[in-house]
Simulated assay, not measured.
Amino acid sequence: MTAAEALPARALVEEATKKSGLIWVRGTGTAQALWHVWHEGTAVLVGDGPGEQPLPAGLEAGATAEVTVRSKDKGGRLVAWTAAVTVLEPYSEQWEAAVGELKGKRLNAPDAERLTERWARESRIVRLTPATWSTDLPGTSLAAPPLPSGATTRREAPAALPRLLLKRRGRR
């Protein structure tokens, strides 16, 4: 891909990631939906601390991750990109800039006034820098079986339920 061909794809990566509330990130395991902030050409995440989102396995310094961005209006896959992972050191210049952006987007923080100190002590700030990207849609569905959970699915409706519901409507 030439530089001229890559420019629209890179612009799509930046604009789609910037506007999306969630991105799907895969380290070494299954992909997880994570909230993020687009800052200085990278997606910045906070996680792995108490009260924060768990980050996927494999998001370590020097690793790569697969990022999938969904369309904000339709929810379908829009673009996918491979990211170089960088873990920011607490109180470094890059960390301070990233935390400044993240604090503005963090909803319902239980300790908003001490959020920075808590993140430095107990969480990780991770930068995902686009390395390669693709606007091609996959040939398969990419569907995966759900993770094990204690949640149950709804049971079938009782046979008499439609009759009972129709009877109520008739009385009104």
Rank of each mutant, 00 (worst) to 15 (best):
Ala4Glu: 11
Leu7Asn: 07
Ala9Ile: 10
Ala9Tyr: 04
Leu12Tyr: 02
Leu12Asp: 04
Lys19Gly: 11
Gly21Asn: 13
Ile23Gly: 01
Val25Thr: 01
Gly27Val: 02
Gly29Tyr: 05
Leu34Asn: 01
Leu34Thr: 01
Leu34Glu: 00
Leu34Gly: 00
Leu34Trp: 00
Trp35Met: 11
Glu40His: 10
Gly41Ile: 01
Ala43Asp: 00
Val44Gln: 01
Val46Glu: 06
Asp48His: 06
Gly49Phe: 04
Pro56Val: 09
Ala57Arg: 13
Ala57Ile: 06
Gly58Asp: 00
Gly58Trp: 04
Leu59Gly: 03
Gly62Glu: 04
Gly62Asn: 03
Gly62Thr: 02
Ala63Leu: 03
Thr64Trp: 11
Thr64Glu: 14
Val69Ile: 06
Arg70Asn: 12
Ser71Trp: 02
Gly75Val: 04
Gly75Glu: 01
Trp81Lys: 01
Ala84Phe: 05
Val85Trp: 03
Thr86Leu: 03
Val87Gly: 03
Val87Phe: 02
Glu89Tyr: 09
Glu93Val: 10
Val99Asn: 02
Val99Thr: 05
Glu101Phe: 05
Leu102Gly: 03
Asn108His: 13
Arg114Lys: 12
Arg118Pro: 01
Arg118Asn: 07
Ala120Thr: 02
Arg121Tyr: 13
Arg121Ile: 11
Pro130Gln: 08
Thr132Ile: 05
Ser134Phe: 01
Asp136Tyr: 09
Ala143Phe: 13
Pro148Leu: 05
Thr152Arg: 14
Thr152Asn: 11
Thr153Ala: 14
Glu156Ser: 13
Pro158His: 08
Leu165Ser: 07
Arg171His: 10
